[in-house]
Design a protein around this nucleic acid. Sequence first.
DNA 1: TAGTCCATGTAAGATGTTACATGATTCA
DNA 2: TGAATCATGTAACATCTTACATGGACTA
Lengths: 187, 187
Amino acid sequence: MVKANPNSTLAFALLGLIGQEPRSGYDLRKFFSSTPMISFSDSPGAIYPALRRLEKRGLVREHMEKQQNLRRRKVFQLTARGRAEFRKWQTQPVRRSDVVRNLDRLLLRFAFMDQFAGKGDALRFLKGLHKELAAYIPNLRDYHRSNRESMPQSGALALESGIRTCEAQLRWTRTAMAAYGETKGER
Amino acid sequence: MVKANPNSTLAFALLGLIGQEPRSGYDLRKFFSSTPMISFSDSPGAIYPALRRLEKRGLVREHMEKQQNLRRRKVFQLTARGRAEFRKWQTQPVRRSDVVRNLDRLLLRFAFMDQFAGKGDALRFLKGLHKELAAYIPNLRDYHRSNRESMPQSGALALESGIRTCEAQLRWTRTAMAAYGETKGER
DNA sequence: TAGTCCATGTAAGATGTTACATGATTCA
DNA sequence: TGAATCATGTAACATCTTACATGGACTA
């Protein structure tokens, strides 16, 4: 039984962007370095090997683009399988552990929702995220209340920063649900 | 010329906690799994090797604690060098790239501020963070304004989530500065 | 005596970082 | 001709993940 490796966060970011339009490794590097997706590394040592792996797994297909003058580019596009795998990852239930440890990854899932899934999936996602955040925040508050006295001030403040971030996320999910409510139509 | 490897985020989290009181690998794992520092991995495969590396670098010292009954524990404590290295990392200037790519790491730096540095350092840190956040947010807003039309709705919403998170952080820095203002005394 | 918690570890493997390398084309 | 930008890559290295392994002590 061969167990397939799950794709990394970077791998999904690449798949999502390639799903918007065919892109080369260089395009992807530039995108990461010049947009709010700058939180991803634009290092060639991360991106080119990652693209190679995606190709080996059959999630993207590459073809040479020979332009006049400019140097040849390797342009990648999604395969049907790549699209399906992204969608599957994207539409899985929101787990508590993701909220606690990988909020960024969850937001990445959402960012490409319109592209691969539908309005129903987006709303399901937001509902799930809302539920998990709403359940987690009281835990953080309780911890804060019980331990504030025994924690250094900077520690308590850092915790408060985390709580506020979660609360901001929670408020955002409501805005986002409202925004989807105004849009009509599945897809 | 030997170039020392910088410590990982996990390594600094371990140093910070060991700096509060001597702790074993098991203590640290439990701390990660049962407090808001749950965003760190409590995997033994990450923690025990990391502790070993810290010891090799002379940042912690281990000694066996033989209790009656219970199994022997290896308890780690900070060395002077470990303390100095943490402090140096903690008090370095807040860089834009940290704000953009490693906000969590910055908060970790702050969380242990009282322990290793002083009130002056904490305030300097908060000022630096405030400055960088205040400079970065307009960039995000501009990008949002210019590209909203051409982005899928979910993409634009995800970006808005990021902007709001930054804004929440910015507000927090002001609260934190005020809190330190009320405390008196360096250290 | 079986399960749970205490406690520490290793092995294999994937991924990412940093630094280095190379070559084409455009433009001053 | 030299610098900048386009464009793709590799090599060495460190770190982390997942899974496995082990064994003592307590308790139902």
